[in-house]
């Protein structure tokens, strides 16, 4: 017998459920906290109360207070809305641009393909963080700058994946057969290209979001990203770092939140990639 049975028997059991579910749950929990926390306990992330600086948890601030007496609970919730929102916007823009340009390069070939690939490769040669920094310096408004800079970095990945997948699919006998049967480009896009690209795109989107959140936090941590007093994960870490001895839990809150969010995203991506 042969092939059919032996192959299906040897195929590894589908284990998408495991990692993907855990990752999605982690992401949902962190994002859910960001959205719901202010509704559960009313408060403001900017109100200072120096008498309570580095104080422990109480009813108005379940996670305690930072060095300026601001509620960590509310600052964390704000930070967990800000970074994912910028990341989501950047991934959406980059994904759309990457899909469009990648599809165009694969379908048209020739000089269109060469020019787009050249631009993508040139961008790839620059360190991503440096590119974001340059755009931040040019753009007014930090959030807008992050969105533009990250989009510019992230689209390359989507472009390359779309181009590679589309080239293989467009050259396949399946597409040739559809064309011989008189189906147009829209059909090829819907029935041949999209089903192949979509799973790859979801993986790239999860990785891209993780990269974006990490970049925002990293630039915040070295004090060139978001400006104080905006609550942002990296900025919160660097602000609380000098007080790690007095208030270790205060420092740990943004660290744990960042770690959980990134782990969740990478578990989602990694499991899909298999």
């Amino acid at each position: 017998m042969s092939g059919a049975l032996a192959a299906s028997g040897a195929a590894p059991p589908r284990r998408r459920a495991g990692g993907f579910a855990v990752g999605a749950a982690l992401v949902l929990v962190t994002l859910g906290f960001g959205v719901l926390a202010p509704l559960v306990v009313a408060g403001d992330p900017f109100t200072q109360s120096l008498t309570k600086a580095l104080g422990g948890p109480d009813a108005a601030a379940p996670f305690g207070y930072d060095h300026l007496g601001r509620s960590l609970f509310h600052r964390l919730a704000h930070a967990l809305r800000l970074s994912p929102a910028i990341a989501a916007a950047a991934v959406a823009t980059a994904g759309a641009a990457g899909l469009l340009l990648g599809g165009l390069a694969a379908a048209r070939g020739g000089w269109v393909d060469r020019a787009l690939t050249l631009v993508a490769d040139a961008l790839l040669a620059l360190p991503g963080l440096l590119l974001v920094l340059i755009v931040l310096a040019i753009m007014p408004g930090t959030a807008l700058g992050f969105w533009a800079g990250l989009s510019l970095v992230l689209w390359v990945e989507f472009f390359r994946l779309t181009r590679a997948t589309s080239r293989a699919v467009l050259a396949s006998p399946a597409v040739e057969a559809s064309r011989l049967l008189g189906f147009g480009p829209l059909y090829v896009l819907r029935r041949h290209l999209w089903p192949e690209i979509a799973p790859v795109m979801l993986t790239a989107a999860a990785f891209g979001a993780a990269t974006a959140i990490m970049a925002i936090a990293a630039l915040g941590f070295v004090s060139v990203g978001m400006r104080a007093p905006t609550p942002e994960l990296g900025l919160m870490m660097v602000e609380l770092l000098p007080y790690w001895r007095e208030a270790p839990f205060a420092l740990l809150t943004p660290v744990i939140a960042t770690f959980t969010l990134l782990l969740g995203l990478i578990l989602m991506a990694g499991d899909r990639a298999r």
Binding site: S172, A174, A177, S178, L180, L181, G182, R191, P195
Partner: peptide, 17 residues
Amino acid sequence: TAFQKLYQDPVSAFPRR
């Protein structure tokens, strides 16, 4: 569309998913 082709490997001639 009256000019058609039959492929050596039929699996590759249909949309995979």
